[in-house]
């Protein structure tokens, strides 16, 4: 029947409406969200920026970023590890496939490969705009909604568009290769690792107690990264974490797209070589 699926979709909608009415009458208890927050959430909101309790605050008006990179920084650190293990898994599946092998030798001009000139011109115009937006999202992550993850994935979208529109061969000639993105990603991860122990090193140099993922001075660890830099609110380590995470996410996702977009013939030839060995 032609309209069978539309009919079933309407039936599902009616089912939801009727069931919701049953739930409202008390069939499954209350579905209302609470009027007040839990104590933990209140404490996070209270301590996000609070210059009167300097021993506990993060000095960032963005509660989400202060949880992501300060209150629960170790959580995010290991979640970042999961992210890059997945990317390393993708790289491991494509071991031996070098997308640059053929295209390095033969010089190609921009007009020969990729999509139409209209698409290329539009991409050329939007590339700097979107990169600027992504960097702004990452740099203002401690002030406004945004941060390293958001900026990195926004930059990855436009880099994917460049890879598709200008074709993989041309992008590789312009320097977006497996090696360069891997190096940028590793630089970002190294930056995150160094930032996480920055205050610890500072404390060892000064000779007082300090912790990993410490940002502002704490009660028994009176060292920290300054929250204000030349009158601007930078929230200590948060801005560094956001910059490095943006770099690592953008480069890591672009790396997987370079591998995913590699030509089938190249991969199949590598697979055949594996089989004959």
């Amino acid at each position: 029947m032609k309209y069978e699926r539309a009919l079933i979709a309407v039936a599902i909608v009616v089912f939801i409406l009727v069931l919701s009415y049953a739930v409202t009458l008390g069939a499954m208890g209350s579905t209302l969200p609470p009027r007040d927050l839990r104590l933990l959430a209140k404490l996070y909101l209270w301590l996000a920026i609070n210059p009167w309790t300097r021993n506990l605050t993060v000095m960032s008006p963005e509660a989400v970023t202060s949880i992501v990179w300060d209150f629960r920084g170790l959580d995010t650190f290991f979640e970042t590890a999961v992210l890059y293990l997945a990317i390393i898994g993708t790289v491991a599946i494509y071991r031996g496939v070098y997308a640059s092998s053929k295209s390095r030798e033969v010089p190609i001009s921009e007009d020969e490969v990729g999509m139409s000139p209209i698409a290329k011109s539009v991409t050329k115009i939007t590339l700097p705009i979107v990169i600027a937006v992504a960097v702004a999202i990452a740099l203002h992550g401690h002030l406004t909604p945004g941060g390293g993850f958001q900026g990195g994935s926004t930059a990855a979208v436009i880099l994917l568009l460049v890879l598709v529109v200008f074709s993989l061969q041309y992008s590789i000639r312009m320097g977006i290769t497996k090696g360069s993105t891997l190096a940028l990603r590793s630089a970002g991860l190294l930056g995150i690792a160094v930032t996480s122990i920055l205050v610890l090193i500072l404390g060892l140099l000064v000779g007082c107690q300090s912790f990993i993922f410490q940002n502002q001075p704490k009660a028994y660890a009176p060292v920290g990264v300054p929250a204000f830099l030349d009158g601007m609110l930078v929230s200590g380590t948060l801005i560094l974490f956001n910059i490095f995470e943006c770099l690592a996410v953008a480069a890591g996702l672009t790396l997987t797209f370079i591998l995913v977009l590699t030509h089938e013939e190249e991969i199949r030839s590598v697979m055949k070589g594996d089989r004959h060995e």
Partner: peptide
């Protein structure tokens, strides 16, 4: 304000989900 803790947890979960989905697509 609303509770910021679930938002902080979901934020990383979405990006990790993307990397895992790309990995599964490659498989």
């Amino acid at each position: 304000a609303v509770d910021p803790l679930p938002q902080a947890l979901v934020l990383t979960a979405i990006v990790i989900g993307l990397a895992v989905i790309i990995f599964l697509a490659v498989i």
